[in-house]
Design a protein around this nucleic acid. Structure first.
Lengths: 190, 190
DNA sequence: CGTCTATTTGAATGTACTCAAAAGCGGTGG
DNA sequence: CCACCGCTTTTGAGTACATTCAAATAGACG
């Protein structure tokens, strides 16, 4: 159950067995059926989630009721409203399982505790957020540089597993285009 | 010279006078004339910069030679290639002064040292990157939700100082549109 | 088998871009 | 002081990329 998340953490910091123990006791496993919400929507997120098995989408709903996919997280990825750790940020993000999914939930106050008790975790989450920042910045840049057709091609190359598993409409939303247009691209490009 | 940056840091962590001293000795002041580069371009960034006075733009140059503005940083903001701290990331970002500008440079290896010696700094930079991530995510969302006209209006409201000080073409690039189109928006909206 | 949702297809439209050229603006040197 | 130069902004015509709306088709699930 915890092997994957410990491997993930080990890419950034080295933990003693005791520290691993302290970490995993903060993690709450949860199984969520396909298309169900990981967390109750409509309130500021109080958890981060590590995807052990399955796939999760993070999205917002705008004033017109349209959903915008901000992230797609298969096994081995973290997701959740990182921003609710920023004072003043009140984004309401929803997390939905796109397949039958197992996640490990980490309460944000437990995260803070881990960071205070073991500064290593401060480092781990710094690197996690840096990486998230990098990915978001690259997507902004890609959006300014390439047409939707190119962005889709790059997406397929970069996440070969995902574009098979995830519904077209979610990929379209993630790329910032309409499902109709992506459908058209898909057929004309083959 | 250091008052502004200490105020900035104090928003996230509390430093003793000794720690303030250790921090500021890592910072190298640099004055850069309008339109000059803050750092030599074309190589992976080895510094973060805190803007004491003036204004800095962070940008990339794509395969076709087009520049894309990723960030605009007036007084009190950090800028630089945060991503060069992420293993494997080899983004080449350039920093340019848009006005006569004073920055405080922090070498990335000094940053690492500060974090190791004083875990407080690990926390400070975690919060800094979290905030950067939040802003990048909001821009992605805005790009998907609003037309260029609305994004420009929001930009003007959010950064009233900037849209007076910064050349139209840089604002256009930051918003992800052409200068011609922004010029048109500007006149038709008044 | 019927219902619900996702995907595909197509026509009309809109948003934003490209290219070209003119106008404005600031600095520099004659 | 004025004329010229280089760069930014404006303007406009034509076009491309992507959206909207509507309807048909395909798939998934009970």
């Amino acid at each position: 159950m915890y092997a994957a998340v410990l491997t993930n953490v080990a890419q950034s910091i080295v933990l003693t067995p005791a520290e691993e123990e302290a970490f995993t006791t903060c993690l709450v496993p949860k199984h969520v059926a396909r298309l169900d919400a990981i967390l109750p929507a409509g309130r500021p997120a109080r958890y981060l989630a590590f995807v052990v098995q399955g796939c999760v989408r993070t999205y917002t709903t705008d004033a017109k009721g349209k959903e915008h996919v901000l992230a797609l997280a298969p096994e081995g990825w973290w997701c959740g409203n990182f921003t609710s750790l920023v004072p003043g940020a009140r984004e309401l993000l929803a997390l939905q399982a796109l397949e039958d999914t197992t996640v490990l939930l980490l309460r944000l106050d437990h995260l803070e505790q881990l960071c205070v008790q073991m500064p290593k975790f401060e480092r781990f989450f710094r690197l996690l957020f840096q990486n998230g920042y990098l990915l978001a910045q690259r997507r902004l840049e890609a959006r300014a540089t390439y047409t939707a057709a190119v962005r889709y091609a790059r997406f397929c190359r970069q996440y070969p597993q995902l574009h098979q598993r995830v519904a077209l409409k979610h990929i379209a939303s993630f790329l910032g285009i309409t499902p109709e247009f992506l459908s058209m691209l898909r057929t004309k490009q083959l």
